[in-house]
Design a protein around this nucleic acid. Structure first.
Length: 417
DNA sequence: TTAGGGTTAG
């Protein structure tokens, strides 16, 4: 019952049920608590999960087990709350609960997602030292980590080592490697992987198809993408919202915005079009192709269709306004997004700053830099070089250099260009 | 009667 409620995302009801159980003398055990804690962590409500955790331990005197810790550690990892992860690991050891196979896999995954493959490899070493045997998930995760960094030969080495470890790659393993090849634009090798899947008696799933489709669009092979799309449907794989996004984005990036828009209109009033991502892709595509009037119309349609713009939507629109030289409108939207409860992120600042710089709005540049400084944001390499160029050319006041210096992130200080 | 992996837009 608790699990059912959690599954439907109804954590509040699940917690209420937990309390009711307690009142009626049916004491919740560690399993009931774990179910709720895990669900809260998955719904990104990590602080609520902590509250329930504390209630379980301190009020009810129920001891957490390795599953409790794994759920919380996984939730913390997803938020990059590393210090707390270490704290929880230490707490586990203190309580005499050893991290298990899954604890290690969670850590490997977390490091790989951050591109920290060396750390992930180190975790695997510790895992082996402790007598745990890494499985296909562990290594597929590691392959993902290398793919994310574009280190395909290392990803390949891990993949090739699987058989000697007695592990059999599954469709997810293949898709991970295929994804790496697509991202590095090695479409031949990606296609080869794709064919390997069926050759090994496995079946490409929706993610495999989506990944391959995106790869084909990225290298401009729209015809091949079309053929694959037909093939996937013939194989009984139903396109999902991800497929839809990939196709719209693929068409836009291959100068086929008209085609993308006609697909969008053909889909019409369906659930597929009720997703903000779809609008973001089209608004971006239209404005990049110089059809900013269409982008504006789509942005306007959001309110009509009761869709809430997100930070991407605003960024794409602000970028579009800047590209059109409509700085006043860009600035207006920048303030409006914050008022609408959607605070600007580092991309917003980057986009608007570049717009101001390219249009020589020096006062606005300074104001924005100060705002970034106050909020702890930092500059990216390309905006920084624009700033430096314009200061050198005398179009920006040199007094701003100190402020700019504070906004240079550590990574950029270490690699002078 | 609870926990782990891959795909979507700046």
């Amino acid at each position: 019952m608790i699990k059912g409620l959690c599954k439907f995302g109804n954590n509040v009801m699940a917690i209420a049920l937990l309390r009711l159980m307690d009142e009626r003398g049916c004491k919740p055990n560690v399993v009931s608590y774990n179910t709720i804690i895990d669900s809260l962590c998955k719904d990104k409500m990590i602080d609520d999960a902590f509250k329930i955790f504390k209630e379980m331990v301190f009020d009810k005197g129920i001891l957490p087990d390795v599953i409790t810790y794994n759920s919380i550690i996984c939730g913390l990892c997803n938020f990059g709350r590393w210090e707390e992860v270490s704290k929880m690991l230490k707490e586990m050891e203190d309580e005499g609960i050893s991290p298990d196979f899954q604890t290690f896999n969670i850590l490997v995954d977390a490091f790989c997602k951050e591109g920290k493959v060396d750390e992930a490899e180190a975790v695997i070493d510790i895992m082996v030292e402790r007598g745990e045997v890494p499985d296909i998930v562990t290594y597929s995760t590691l392959i993902d980590g290398y793919c994310l960094r574009g280190e395909m030969s290392k990803a390949r080495t891990v993949f090739d080592s699987l058989t000697s470890r007695g592990l059999v790659p599954n469709v997810i393993t293949y898709s991970s490697l295929l994804n790496g090849y697509c991202k590095t634009l090695n479409i031949e090798e990606a296609m080869h992987m794709f064919h390997e899947i069926t050759r090994k008696g496995l079946k490409p799933d929706i993610v495999t198809y989506n990944t391959m489709l995106q790869g084909l669009f990225r290298v401009g092979r729209c015809g091949a993408a079309r053929k694959l799309f037909d093939e996937m449907r013939a194989q009984g794989q139903l396109p999902d919202e991800c497929t839809y996004g990939i196709i719209l984005d693929g068409l836009c990036n291959n100068h086929q915005v008209e085609e993308a828009l006609s697909v969008f209109h053909l889909v019409g009033d369906s659930k597929l079009n009720s997703h903000i991502v779809v609008y973001n892709i089209l608004i971006d595509g239209a404005s990049k192709c110089g059809k900013f009037d269409i982008a504006r119309a789509l942005f306007h349609d959001l309110t009509v269709n009761d869709l809430q713009p997100d930070v991407w939507t605003y960024n794409v629109m602000i970028s579009g306004f800047c590209g059109e030289g409509l700085l006043r409108e860009a600035k207006h939207l920048f303030y409006k997004m914050d008022e609408s409860g959607c605070p600007p992120d580092n991309v917003t600042y980057r986009v608007l700053l570049q717009g101001y710089l390219k249009n020589q709005h020096c006062d606005d540049v300074e104001m924005l830099l100060q705002e970034m400084d106050g909020k702890g944001y930092s500059l990216d390499a390309s905006t920084l070089s624009l700033l430096i160029d314009q200061t050198a050319a005398g179009s920006l006041n040199r007094s701003m250099l100190k402020l700019i210096g504070r906004l240079v992130p550590k990574e950029l200080m270490e690699t002078p260009s």
